[in-house]
Design a protein around this nucleic acid. Structure first.
Lengths: 326, 326
DNA sequence: TTGTAGGCGTTATCAC
DNA sequence: GTGATAACGCCTACAA
């Protein structure tokens, strides 16, 4: 395969002239340019990005670390990242950590070996090792973004949806439909995250309503135990399910028990993937803007790579999507 | 950052000894090994994969080219690929071509610049430029797999589901439920692909039943025009929808028209993502084994990279999944 | 069992 | 405007 040197020889210039011309670092004479262009065409020159990376000590590769790519929640984000990176001529590595025998340290090792230009972590790392990994990443001083992780700022850039606002929007929406007794169903959400939603509920209705009933889904289950019974017993008429899939299962369970969705109990979901749209009834939801989250994550990585000042924390505004379950 | 040379110096050996030791090309003396290990630990050595790639003229990076990552159909396949590659210490580049201003030639250029070890194409490329791209790939002689593209063998490895079998299974399933007049609904499927299904229908029931009614969904629409009306008019009692999303929309449309799914019209879907499971009613489907397809694609790429003889064409056996729509 | 030296393809430095 | 030279970090004959 033709190299820069070959081009140089063929065009009767030095390799460095070709290099600088291609990287538009210099202006060359018209005649030189023509000869170089012709050589490139004739020899079918393909630049070697690997050699370039070695010399420059940086690649154009960004890695996304996520639990699972075959999950619309994560793949929406990833698609936003992919689109943004590609527009800036960066490549995207994807690493799934769920499936595989990869732990956080393995991943970091891999990143460094491959001279990754930046890393976007999506979702939750196992909390035990999280603090240590963070430490390693910070020491390494590589561009990094934690996407979709609603935690206090600890020295690395964050992008996440405003969960308090999500809670508030959700509660307000349900109240506005005339619902009085609300519940939150969540799938083993860590305490601090859940608290954001509860805080949002508190803000809705100026605190004049009582707090929501909290119901948790055990690991490996689709719904809380005795879910429908508990809802009825507590005379709940509006449920905010903090997980799209569970929201769907809930509507199924309610339907099976002949409880009318909306009229008897309204169900509001969180996240706005295709699943909400295709389920029956179509789910109203609080849209967390996942694609946008991906786009912003990528932009923040690129900003860091280019040594620009970036906003350390970006909080996205959730949106209410009205469909047929509320 | 510590390099191989640093390790060598620190361990009082030559760089080449360290290199060969790390690549397990030689056995070194116990004492040497100990010193090297210690040096690596003390200096925190991270191998530079980029330099290695330059020297060896090959990377461990495999690229997946697909239309859309935020689509369960493709992301299931991708997840299978990711898992397999990671087990063999290969990295995965993902390129979306749908979203972006990337055409086939841009992609190929990118692949070559980055010294990609192999490429997996998922799904359909625009047919105009497809033949040309193929030509380029073949000339380049890089490992490549076309996944999920049911076409005749043209010199490059293929993995795809047996669509004739899928059609046969689907028809047999519907017949076995007592359905007599079947229809196929497809979303602008290219002629040859559609013909596979029709052939499969022919094989079911030993040709003693009449051929299915073919209904096509126009670009940008969810269902064929006058879909329900046409089904009723033709007294169709079993529909095989060759697109999961459309199958869901069809059940919705039928429900809206007060037509009983299963009893009046059975709906069979193609593909077995989470969507089939969560829709109402839960969709029976022909499972195309997408994750398995990804796993095999990755294995075929790895086989080629390792210069092993590989099966040029792998055809996957579809499976019937019985749920509540048939 | 270990070391020496050259080169992979590119870019940066300095000179002209 | 252009060129010579060295260097990025690693691997691999070949030599010892």
């Amino acid at each position: 395969m033709a190299t820069l040197k070959d081009i140089a020889k063929h065009a009767n210039v030095s390799a460095c002239t070709v290099s600088r011309y291609l990287n538009s670092n210099i202006v060359v004479k018209k005649s030189t340019e023509a000869r170089i262009q012709q050589a490139i065409k004739e020899l079918g020159y393909i630049p070697n990005v690997v050699a370039k990376a070695l010399k420059r000590n940086e690649t154009s590769n960004v890695a996304v670390i996520l639990p699972k790519i075959n999950n619309l929640y994560y793949s929406e984000i990833t698609s936003g990242i992919s689109q943004t990176l590609s527009r800036h001529h960066y490549n995207l590595f994807v690493y799934e950590v769920d499936n595989q025998n990869l732990n956080e340290d393995d991943i970091l090792q891999l990143m460094r070996e491959n001279m990754i230009a930046g890393i976007i972590f999506i979702g939750l790392f196992s909390d035990k090792s999280f603090q240590e990994s963070i430490q390693n990443v910070l020491e390494w001083e590589i561009p990094v973004v934690y996407a979709n992780r609603s935690i206090p700022y600890q020295g690395f850039p964050l992008v996440y949806p405003d969960l308090v606002k999500a809670g508030k929007l959700g509660a307000e929406h349900l109240y506005s439909k005339g619902k009085k007794k609300l519940a939150i169903v969540h799938k083993h959400l860590p305490e601090p995250l859940l608290d954001y939603f509860i805080e949002g509920f508190g803000q809705a209705g100026n605190g004049s309503f009582e707090g929501p009933l909290i119901m948790v889904i055990e690991e490996g289950k689709d719904l809380p135990d005795n879910c429908v019974f508990t809802l009825l017993e507590n005379k709940i008429d509006g449920v905010f399910v903090l997980n799209e899939l569970s929201a769907i299962y809930l509507t199924k369970a309610l339907h099976k028990s002949d409880i009318r969705i909306v009229h008897d109990i309204a169900v509001l979901s969180l996240g706005n993937s295709l699943m909400s749209e295709i389920s029956t009834p179509e789910l109203s939801c609080v849209d967390l803007q996942n694609r946008e989250l991906g786009v912003i994550s990528a932009e923040m990585i690129l900003g860091q790579i280019r040594k620009q000042e970036i906003e350390p924390v970006t909080v996205l505004e959730p949106l209410i999507i009205q469909r047929n379950s509320t």
